[in-house]
């Protein structure tokens, strides 16, 4: 009965565009989109570089990257916490418990996924494509760009997977963001706090929003993979 009651209230909160719910959801999106965009800007070229270079230990590096796909979020949270805590190497920046450090934490979290999936997206492209590009006069950078372009659907899928992991994680956001109301509180940290406080309505409302986002992400992903 309590669940039913909570669900009704939650839907009311969403339909009435409750300021607190909207603010938390908006911040979640902002932080995770920022983390995904920034990580993509680094990871896409880096993945191409790894894919196109030949060096000893390349296979081992790719295996290592794949191992980090499922690294626990709290492990990244701990690492970033130590890095940015007062006594840590980046402590002087005073970034702990800010949205900025949450973006950094999520970037680190999704880097293996972006790198690994982009490398496998590139591996799926016919080996004759880079040769064809070079034979038509493409420089190394132009060749890499054309191969990335050929792999665009799989690469976009990698980016969306990264975003999915970023927005749904709780460990990093809680440990380095601190769940400060109106500043670093995001959907997942709010759900975990409100549930422990017994405020199920807000938790359910945020949960519905999170699932809706996940659903949308999946729909987009499906559309892309069908092409």
């Amino acid at each position: 009965m309590e669940l039913w009651h909570g669900l009704i209230k939650a839907i009311e909160l969403i339909i009435s565009l409750d300021p607190e719910v909207m603010e938390i959801a908006g911040r979640s999106l902002q932080i995770s989109v920022a983390a995904t965009v920034l990580a993509s800007l680094i990871c896409l070229p880096l993945a191409s570089l790894i894919y196109f270079s030949h060096f000893p230990g390349k296979r081992a590096l790719i295996n290592l990257i794949q191992t980090f796909f499922s690294i626990p979020t709290v492990a990244i949270g701990l690492f970033v916490f130590i890095l940015f805590s007062r006594a840590g190497p980046m402590g002087g920046l005073n970034l702990l418990f800010t949205p900025t450090v949450m973006v950094i934490g999520q970037m680190i979290l999704i880097t293996p996924i972006l790198l690994g999936l982009t490398i496998s997206a590139l591996s799926g492209i016919d080996k004759a494509i880079p040769d064809t590009a070079r034979s038509l006069g493409a420089s190394q950078l132009q060749t890499a760009t054309v191969v990335l372009r050929e792999a665009r659907f799989a690469v976009v899928a990698a980016v969306i997977m990264g975003f999915g992991r970023a927005i749904s994680e709780v460990g990093v956001a809680l440990m380095v963001g601190g769940n400060i109301k109106g500043f670093t509180r995001v959907i997942t940290t709010a759900i975990s706090l409100e549930t422990s406080k017994g405020d199920l309505e807000l938790s359910i409302a945020l949960g519905i929003i999170l699932i809706t986002i996940a659903l949308l992400v999946n729909l987009v992903l499906n559309r892309i993979q069908q092409r």
Binding site: A128, I129, L136, G137
Partner: peptide, 16 residues
């Protein structure tokens, strides 16, 4: 290389 062109045996076209 930009002064020549090479048509590979198995033609691959770009997905465009």
């Amino acid at each position: 290389r930009r002064r020549m062109s090479f048509v590979l045996q198995k033609p691959v076209v770009f997905n465009t």
